[in-house]
Design a binder for these strands. Structure first.
Lengths: 187, 187
DNA sequence: TATTGTTATACTCTATAACTATA
DNA sequence: TATAGTTATAGAGTATAACAATA
């Protein structure tokens, strides 16, 4: 299910530039961040396959636990994606009984999306996976150092204006354009 | 050239789980890492568009500067990709005069790939971009804190067995399989 | 027969735009 | 007319497997 596909992305600017002072490159931290972030995300996705879920599913479940009865439009906005993409993802998790689309009686165009009990149980399992993931990821650091790291990262994230809930994917790092599809006009 | 495509990937497990102690979630650091890593990689790719390059190009140039005369097979291995994919990427940079494929006289199947002078100049520009990237990424931190962060990250990366030169991409985090192509047998 | 570089192909993802139904 | 959810489609990426040249 999870593929082992790799992708060329960057290479470290660690090379020998200094005049002998073993100066670690000035952009080493940025590279490390990207490299480790990729690694962390990949490992997390791997853990999720135990539950036969992909990261996007987990993101949906979590948002639903925080914001029940959300509409698909709003959910798409929160996740930073387009409503059309949500359809299939919601189909996945609804088909497995993790969420429910309930009709809104006031406006029958809208669906209110809810987490089911099974969805909540799955979310708990995801939490357990996450904790295990975190433990194995940071074995090299003491408890205190982990907190130190988290604090530094949080400050960077805040300054960079990242939201605390969701992060966009890594899809189009290659500098390509994802395709300009569109339906044909029927006659 | 660079697309703004977002991708649902994870959501933070930051939710209210503790009993009031404002306990930051145990997997917050892993999430932050993934989120910031994505952000950093995306920004770096954005900077690279100034040079009309994608991250894979930069990775190739850098490896060539460290390992001249490398064969395409070896280069592919170093980058963690398949030789067939390298072909197009090398075509890109060769078409722009940044690299050269020279015929190996001893074994005419092999190409020795070299960086040109123009390629070296481009690599220097990439270095400048990287430094600027790093500066804007870590404005929130003092010089000392940046070093602290880099040290922590490096220890994690080493323990996790990541190489210092290249990192795999973020392509297949969605848990999909990239496609089972293959050529048709002629006749 | 094995290996190097290359090409053709299949499979996948993702956003766009049209579509249906409601308002 | 406008909006919510859906579907069909286009465009692009990536690994696979066959291929040609060489060993």
């Amino acid at each position: 299910m999870i593929s082992i596909c790799k992708n060329i992305c960057m290479s470290s600017p660690s090379a020998s530039e200094g005049k002998g002072k073993a100066a670690s490159s000035p952009s080493a931290a940025a590279f490390l961040l990207a490299q480790l972030g990729s690694h962390a995300a990949s490992k997390f996705a791997g853990h999720l396959t135990e539950l036969k879920l992909v990261p996007a599913h987990a993101g949906i479940l979590r948002i639903l636990s925080q914001t029940p009865a959300i509409t698909q439009q709003a959910l798409a906005r929160k996740l930073g994606t387009v409503p059309s993409r949500l359809v299939g993802l919601l189909d996945d998790v609804e088909g497995r009984g993790l969420i429910e689309r309930r009709m809104n009686r006031d406006d029958r165009r809208r669906h209110a999306v809810y987490l089911t009990n099974e969805g909540r149980a799955t979310l708990r399992k995801i939490g357990e996976l996450s904790r295990g993931h975190q433990r194995t990821l940071f074995t090299a650091l003491s408890e205190e150092e982990q907190e130190q790291l988290a604090a530094l990262l949080q400050r960077v994230a805040d300054e960079q204006g990242l939201t605390r809930d969701v992060h966009p994917g890594y899809r189009t790092l290659g500098g390509h354009t994802p395709g300009k599809g569109g339906r044909r006009k029927r006659r």
